[in-house]
Simulated assay, not measured.
Amino acid sequence: MHIPLALKRLFLFSICAGLQAANAAPAQEVHFNSLDGTPLRAWLLQPDAPANARIPTVIALHGCGGLYARGGAADGKLNERHQAMAEMLLQEGYAVLWPDSLTPRGVDQLCTQKIGQRSITQAERRRDALAALAWVAAQPWARPNAIALMGWSHGGSAVLAATDARQSEVAAQRQKFAAAIAFYPGCGAASKDGYQPNTALTLLLGEKDDWTPAAACITLGQAVGAEVHVYPDSYHDFDNPSGKVRLRRDVPNGLHPGQGVHAGRNPAAREEAYARVREELRQALGKSASK
């Protein structure tokens, strides 16, 4: 579909306007190919840092709903969950890269599609994450041994897929992630397939999650020696900075297929999870260039 140049410019302006934080440069649009050859677009944010500094970086993977907010004044910008995390990471002195795995493949969202019918699987997400790793590691401003991977839901499952030592694509990479953090991933497939992490893994889970239930991730975490944190009275998307828990009847997957799933914030759990993220990144990535 042809998109007029003026609309393209408006879209890019709205993205950049939603990808800024204090003490950070505006977002840069960058491009690289996935390992499967798909041309990808990603958004890079960098903190203020001394000239020639090497900056530790977090590669952040969106969930099944994609990167962007839909509707209202925020339409086309990073959604609130992603924006809040970007701001926190920048304040900590980390660069953040947000690859878009959906729109380059002509897909807006996957949440309302049954898992077995999705056109974008964890194979594509793994290849996108590994391509992002190689791209960051090659940048003159980056610290190649200080690149972490983080993801939410479908992107959390992608964290597992991209750090599975049994996968030939993972084993073939010159670099590996210094740490991996997954918010409420689906862990059933990874557990069944014998997942073995090639880096330190942290799982952040909601006790009441009926979309990607915590039980499978607790079992997986115990089997592979991951750090597992389960937040009480918390559903899927508990780290969202706004909104409230609601029932999404449009999601066909989850603990009770066809009955919908719950998703929404828990401010206390969010604060605890953010503190855990900060601690894990400080241990894995070392001192940031701007600290």
Rank of each mutant, 00 (worst) to 15 (best):
M1A: 14
I3P: 04
L7G: 03
K8I: 12
R9A: 13
F11L: 15
L12V: 12
S14H: 15
I15D: 04
C16N: 14
A22M: 08
N23R: 11
P26V: 07
P26D: 07
Q28P: 06
E29P: 09
H31K: 12
N33E: 13
S34P: 08
S34Q: 10
L35C: 08
L35T: 07
G37E: 04
G37C: 09
T38D: 03
L40W: 06
L40I: 11
L44R: 00
Q46T: 15
D48R: 04
N52R: 12
A53R: 07
A53Q: 13
A53K: 09
A53T: 09
R54D: 02
R54K: 15
I55N: 03
T57F: 01
V58K: 07
I59S: 03
I59L: 03
I59K: 06
A69I: 04
G72M: 08
G76Q: 12
L78Y: 04
M85R: 14
M88F: 11
L90M: 11
Q91F: 14
Q91E: 15
E92M: 11
G93C: 11
L97F: 04
P99V: 12
P99M: 11
L102M: 10
V107A: 05
Q109N: 13
Q109P: 08
L110V: 05
L110Q: 13
L110C: 06
T112D: 12
K114E: 15
K114L: 15
I115C: 09
Q122S: 03
E124D: 07
R125K: 14
R125F: 12
R126Q: 13
D128W: 11
L130W: 04
A134W: 00
W135F: 08
V136R: 00
P140E: 14
W141S: 05
A142L: 03
R143Y: 07
N145S: 13
W152N: 06
W152I: 03
G155N: 03
G156P: 02
A158G: 15
A161V: 10
T163G: 12
S168M: 10
R174I: 00
Q175P: 09
K176F: 01
K176L: 01
I181H: 08
F183H: 14
F183G: 06
C187V: 06
C187I: 12
G188A: 15
G188Y: 14
G188C: 06
G188E: 14
A189S: 15
A190C: 08
S191M: 10
Y195A: 02
A200K: 13
L201M: 06
D210S: 02
T212I: 01
T212L: 05
A214E: 12
A216L: 12
T219C: 08
G221R: 03
Q222A: 15
Q222V: 05
V224Y: 02
V224M: 06
V230W: 07
V230Y: 09
Y231G: 01
P232R: 07
D233E: 07
S234Q: 10
Y235E: 01
Y235D: 01
Y235S: 03
F238E: 07
F238H: 03
N240L: 10
N240G: 10
P241H: 02
G243Y: 02
G243W: 01
N253R: 04
N253T: 11
P257G: 05
Q259V: 00
Q259I: 02
G260I: 02
G264I: 00
N266F: 02
R270F: 13
E271R: 15
A273W: 01
A273D: 07
R276S: 06
R276W: 07
V277Y: 11
V277A: 01
R278N: 10
E279N: 11
E279G: 14
E280F: 11
L281M: 08
